[in-house]
Nucleic acid binder design. Structure first.
Length: 568
RNA sequence: GCGCCAGUAGCUCAGCAGGACAGAGCAGCGGCCUUCUAAGCCGCGGGUCGUGGGUUCGAGUCCCGCCUGGCGCGCCA
């Protein structure tokens, strides 16, 4: 018997887990009594039926067993159903459709769930999944060659939110930024600054063919002119120009990250890895395993023994013997593994897939387990305004920077929008919708629900209605069916969080919050549902429920790094 | 040409481990504020799930082919 299914995290007692246990026990009894004969291992699931009339939970256990049992699924379902332990938690258990077993939970069950949610508070909303476990999340990792783009924004927010999800569920998280400061691109950066510097002093220079065109290069050059005058005119060492540029650009990146509510604990860079001999170690190890070949003056990684489509250059030809991008990246990943994290998450743009596969293949070839490494790939971002694409050309330095986006929409909207899509999907960022302060903008829709609830609590205080500390004192029996439905959605909150963490798919949370906010707005708008009324016991029960909705919204928004306003 | 990702309503996208009649938001039209915030709610339509096969009791979901779009296939990162 395999249950719970793979991926389930021990220690979290969701309703699904409890049902799984009960069904497992019923199966065992049915087997003892001979009503089920097959010995096969049944991999069944507990799901939430799309159609609520089917019940609160359903299982396909009979369907997956029917073949081995040699009996119609409905018959198997009936046999299992009969062995289910009697429980006053169910109001109804029946066999439906082709052989599903449907469970309808009794109101009493939901009352209990809601009470324990209130008692558990933090522990209920944010289950401790990773006690004692360490996670490293590498994200953004933009090289300091220019301002952050909108695409970087998606990376930063994805990585940060993944980190927040782990953190909130009890993992010890390291947020890490890796960058290259020794490669060719950085030389181009130095050359670009030098050219602008000389230009500013009236010297005749040719701008590097693939140099960085943006205004920020001129600003950095102008600063050098201010500080050093003509002293650097004869300086040909590009490092003189590259280093200050890196500093200035990084300061800029930090500022932008701060605006996005993103920070890092550790920065790792290429030059340090080289200086520490870690890159040389990788090369030596690869050499020992006969995975290198010299050709055209360069050192190549042999693709064939690793199952890769082609050889890759690791050390460039030429007197400087410079490593390519992937060489220090391999060293970096080995370094991550050696640091003993339980989970290592990398957030990379779609253009890095092939390179990352090479890195993983090398790690395996060197005898490392890559089981802990989880890769989140995200597709590119397109900006649209009223259905029209906003043109972006990185080469000419004509692009909307992340800063400009933040100027226009703010951190709340930017973060929410970046997270609203599955990372695998292209993201269409509609600036027109994003800047609208109206209900059709989902960010405000969710925030407004929270602000409304905050207002309700202010009104309750004015009216002298206060929730007792002990949830047992509240008469939840007074809640209507509609209110119980709202409560069921709150009970789902921790399940959504578990899914987000297990699948590393933060987009599920914004979707959940939009649904929860929607259900609350609809409830709130009915005149018969006034929370604060003349019947004190009913008011307390409703306020209790409202408090849980508010907490769910608050926890959810906080996990997304979005503000949960008390007033709007 | 090869590899990866995607193709679901007019638009942007969900669809949890294959499950019971395919969902949401936006856009369009029409309603609702002496009432805890109208940044809200209610009502009305609209889809051969790109396409052709296959596996299965059951396929938007898995497998294969084809079509379309994005990304990659540098001694760039």
């Amino acid at each position: 018997m395999v249950y719970p299914a793979e991926g389930a995290i021990l220690g979290v007692n969701t309703t699904k887990d409890r049902l799984t246990e009960m069904i497992g026990a019923a199966l065992a009894r049915a087997r003892l009594s001979g009503r089920i004969t097959g010995s096969s291992v049944a991999r069944f699931i507990i799901e939430l039926p799309k159609d609520p009339t089917h019940g609160d939970y359903a299982t396909n256990v009979a369907l997956v067993m029917a073949r081995d049992e040699g009996k119609p699924a409905r018959e198997v379902a009936a046999a299992i159903k009969n062995e289910l332990a009697a429980s006053d938690e169910f109001s109804e258990v029946n066999v439906g459709g082709p052989g599903f077993i449907n469970f309808r939970m009794a109101p009493k069950f939901w009352h209990g769930q809601l009470r324990s949610a209130a008692e558990g508070a933090q522990a209920f909303f944010l289950p401790k999944l990773g006690s004692g476990k360490r996670v490293q999340v590498e994200f953004l990792s933009a090289n300091p060659t220019g301002p952050l783009t909108v695409g970087h924004g998606r990376n930063a927010v994805l990585g940060d939110t993944i980190a927040r999800l782990y953190e909130a569920t009890g993992f010890e998280v390291t947020r890490e930024y890796y960058f290259n400061n020794g490669g060719r691109q950085m030389k181009v950066l130095g050359a670009s600054v030098r050219a602008r510097y000389l230009e500013a002093l009236g010297e005749k220079v040719e701008f590097p063919e693939d140099g960085y065109q943006g205004q920020y290069i001129r600003d950095i050059a102008a600063d050098l002119v201010n500080r050093h005058g003509r002293a650097l005119v004869a300086q040909t060492d590009l490092e003189t120009f590259r280093a200050p540029a890196e500093q200035v650009i990084f300061a800029d990146i930090h500022r932008t990250c701060e605006r996005l509510r993103v920070h890092f604990d550790v920065y790792t860079n290429e030059l340090d890895l080289i200086a520490q001999g870690k890159v040389a170690d990788v090369m030596a190890e690869l050499g020992r395993r006969d995975l290198l070949v010299e050709r055209d003056g360069a050192v190549w990684l042999r693709g064939e023994p690793l199952g890769l489509p082609k050889d890759e250059v690791l050390i460039r030809s030429g007197p400087e013997r410079e490593p390519t991008y992937r060489t220090p990246d391999i060293a970096y990943h080995i370094d991550k593994l050696k640091r003993g994290f339980d989970v290592i998450v990398g957030v990379f743009g779609a253009d890095h897939i092939a390179e990352h596969k090479t890195v993983l293949a090398v790690l395996k070839a060197l005898g490392h387990s890559t089981a802990a490494i989880k890769t989140v790939i995200y597709q590119f971002v397109t900006l649209t305004r009223g259905g029209q694409k906003v043109k972006m050309s990185t080469r000419k330095g004509e692009y909307i920077t992340l800063d400009q986006l933040l100027d226009e929409v703010g951190a709340d909207v930017a973060r929410f929008f970046f997270l609203m899509r599955k990372s695998d999907s292209h993201l269409d960022f509609d600036l027109e919708l994003a800047t609208r302060q109206a209900p059709e903008n989902p960010v405000f829709y969710v925030q407004y629900a929270h602000a409304r609830l905050a207002s309700v609590f202010r009104e309750a205080q004015k009216a002298g209605v206060a929730l007792p500390n002990d949830p047992a004192a509240i008469q939840l029996e007074l809640l209507s069916e509609e209110e119980i439905e709202l409560g069921k959605r709150i009970v789902r909150f921790p399940e959504v969080i578990v899914e987000c963490v297990e699948e590393i798919e933060p987009h599920r949370l914004p979707f959940y919050l939009i649904e929860l906010a929607g259900e609350f707005h609809r409830y709130y708008n009915k005149s018969t549902n006034r929370i604060i009324g003349t019947q004190i016991e009913l008011s307390l029960a409703r306020l209790f429920l409202a408090g849980l909705v508010k907490q769910a919204l608050k926890h959810g928004l906080t996990l997304l790094g979005v503000d949960a306003p008390e007033r709007m």
